[in-house]
Amino acid sequence: MEVLLCFVVGILFSVGLYFILHRHFFKLILGLMLFGLATNLFIFVIGRLTRGGSPIIAETSEVALEPFADPVPQALLLTAIVIGFGIQAFAIVLIRRVHQSFGTTDLDDLDTTEKIETPEKPEFE
């Protein structure tokens, strides 16, 4: 099971990275999402998988019965998912705005801020 998950993590990472390097906006978003998913799965796997033992202490005993799953990676995962959700939502809205105001879906068209010449109209105030 762990070996299988390792392969899944690897595939997710490579697909995510491939999409991030793509020029299309939509692929960029997909890539970021897949990259985040791969990270979450990575933490889940590296925190060691234990099947069928929830870390809940029964009312009759003082400690949880072995073997029990480590709850910490799951807590980290939950937090990371929520944070990632927020950031991805922001990224989607941002890309929508970029698409609206630039009228393009190609990341290569966004190259004005790196040019040495100052734009004609400075955009302050």
Binding site: L28, L94, S101, L110, T113
Partner: peptide, 23 residues
């Protein structure tokens, strides 16, 4: 326009950095 363009670069690279930190 310039802000949106700067933001998209900043956001993309920082999401990747956060993922790496999490790893």
């Amino acid at each position: 326009k310039a802000q949106l363009e700067g933001a998209i670069k900043y956001v993309t690279i920082n999401i990747i950095a956060s993922s790496i930190l999490l790893m």
